[in-house]
Write a protein that binds this DNA or RNA. Structure first.
Lengths: 160, 160
DNA sequence: CCTCCAAGTTCCTTTAGGGAACTGACCCTA
DNA sequence: TAGGGTCAGTTCCCTAAAGGAACTTGGAGG
């Protein structure tokens, strides 16, 4: 379906989408994060086509988000694991979970809960400022052109 | 290309993907957030096909993420704006930007910067615990089944 | 030797994205 | 009042990507 390549845009959202924006990719990362790490396990947990699963895994390994490692050499068997780059993507999944819980979970409540090691409590994520530690959301910031801004592209002031 | 519907899965990631997971949707939200709000503006800022843009906008309005409002009645003209539900999605975009800046921006640096109103400094977002306020990432939590968990689906312990 | 298993690969059908042209409602101005 | 311009889509055709099922390969196990 001749999709536009997002990877070349001067926009961190587009470039992130290029890596994990295709259907199934975030769910694959979720599964690997919780320990569903082998091809057939992924295939039947997700119900994804084997063809598409193979394509996605290959891409995610190329992008250094997942690592393919042999866990048995005699019968050559492999499993997938998150790299540091991939582990940081799980932050994104946690924010997706938060939004999905608030706006799509309904009566039934959230499918999963997080217990925070540091305080032991059931919690969700919130966005805070890296500098002062206070909450920081879309309405708490000005967006300014950065070093790599392309004038006029996303207006003088673009998020990206 | 007969895509699997994610909206029915018991998983907040899948349900979030169902709303904004299609190609272009996050970029459309970004543009609306920064004030690129009309059909033709969006079309030429993004270079998206008009057909796909019309489909996406319709979907996002149905999902109550965007609102379509008339800004002129004489020549009937419309623009799009974020609803509260949509504004909270921008949190997700901010986390995408953070990841993209760290892992895909390279030499050139980030295309945009955020200035935090509260402290006035250039900053990025970090994930903190809603309960104790300390940092909280993928390696700082246990994932437990929640009220709406489906046993065995994402194993006993699934993120979702 | 026959069968099983994991991890893919191949093949075919269906459908969604790209791109460009077209439509319709309304303005302007000459 | 005829002609052109703008905005906001819609229609059409073509190609490429997703679904699904069957096939393949390299070994293990009985």
């Amino acid at each position: 379906m001749q999709r536009t390549r997002f990877g070349d845009m001067t926009c961190s959202i587009a470039r992130t989408m290029d890596v994990i924006g295709e259907p199934w990719s975030p769910l694959i990362l979720r599964d690997v994060y919780v320990g569903i790490a082998r091809f057939d396990q992924l295939q039947d947990d997700l119900g994804i086509s084997r063809k598409v699963l193979a394509e996605r895994l290959k891409w995610l390994v190329e992008q250094d988000v997942l690592e393919r490692r042999e866990y048995s050499a005699k019968p050559p068997r492999h499993e997938y694991a998150l790299t540091p780059k991939g582990t940081e993507l799980v932050n994104l999944l946690m924010v997706m979970v938060r939004w999905g819980d608030r706006w799509t979970a309904g009566e039934a409540g959230p499918p999963v809960l997080y217990r925070h090691h540091a305080c032991g409590r059931i919690a969700h994520v919130e966005l805070h400022c890296s500098e002062c530690g206070e909450p920081m959301g879309p309405t708490d910031i000005d967006v300014l052109p950065g070093p790599a801004s392309t004038p006029g592209d996303v207006r003088s002031t673009g998020i990206s």
